[in-house]
């Protein structure tokens, strides 16, 4: 996590059944959070799906996506190096907490058990490794999901309204934690949200999409 990364969206244009949906040309620097806002139907989630490599075949896109200058537009999702956080923590229900963390670690990670232990300590859940994720509170699950993402050593991150399902008193705290970690790791981040408070806490540029 030493190197600092940057992400470039070059002349992106997405169409749905021939009708233009959105176009974008921007650069996200190391540790920067670009917030994309807009009503539903404005193409926020399609933008996210295109960047992650999951875009449905109903859409057509032209333009390039570059990570540290390398063109990753045509790469399959698992080789892009782009991590994802959803609205729900999506901790695998059949694995333990520590199993979830180890699941995403790169193969070459020397001591996965120790790395998982260390990661849990960093989010204040040191003794939770052997636990069943279903027994954790919503906030705890979100923190594990964040740490799973970080330990997979992504080079860029996409956030899909990751705070919208948290209790309001947890939201601010969780935002600080997520943005702090992503900034420290120098990861370019794209945040999709409805919530202006999210954009404010992210502290970066805000892009409004029209319906």
């Amino acid at each position: 996590m030493s190197a600092f990364h940057h992400l470039e969206i070059e002349q992106l244009s997405i169409r749905l059944h021939g009708k233009p949906l959105l176009s974008l040309d921007t650069r996200i620097g190391p540790g920067e959070v670009l917030t994309v806002m807009g009503p539903s139907g404005s193409g926020k989630s399609t933008l996210l799906a295109w960047m992650a490599g999951f875009m449905s075949r109903d859409f057509e896109a032209s333009g390039r996506l570059r990570l540290d200058g390398r063109d990753i537009t045509a790469l399959p999702p698992e080789r892009r190096g782009i991590g994802l956080l959803f609205q729900d923590p999506m901790l695998f229900p059949h694995l333990s907490v520590s199993g979830n963390l180890r699941f995403g670690m790169p193969r070459a990670t020397p001591d996965k058990q120790a790395a998982a232990q260390d990661g849990l300590a960093r989010i204040g859940l040191a003794d939770f490794g052997a636990r069943d994720p279903a027994t954790l509170s919503g906030g705890q699950q979100s923190r594990v999901a964040l740490m799973r993402l970080l330990l997979s050593q992504p080079q860029a991150v996409l956030l899909d309204e990751p705070f919208s399902k948290l209790d309001s008193h947890l939201r601010h705290e969780m935002r600080q934690l997520v943005f702090g970690h992503l900034r420290d790791a120098g990861l370019p981040t794209l945040l999709v949200t409805h919530d202006h408070q999210d954009a404010e806490d992210a502290g970066g540029r805000v892009l409004e999409l029209d319906a």
Partner: peptide, 15 residues
């Protein structure tokens, strides 16, 4: 939920 495999893939795990 298709997001289960999307999460796994975005963590760099193969298909």
């Amino acid at each position: 939920d298709p997001r289960w495999s999307q999460v796994a893939l975005s963590l760099g795990v193969t298909r």
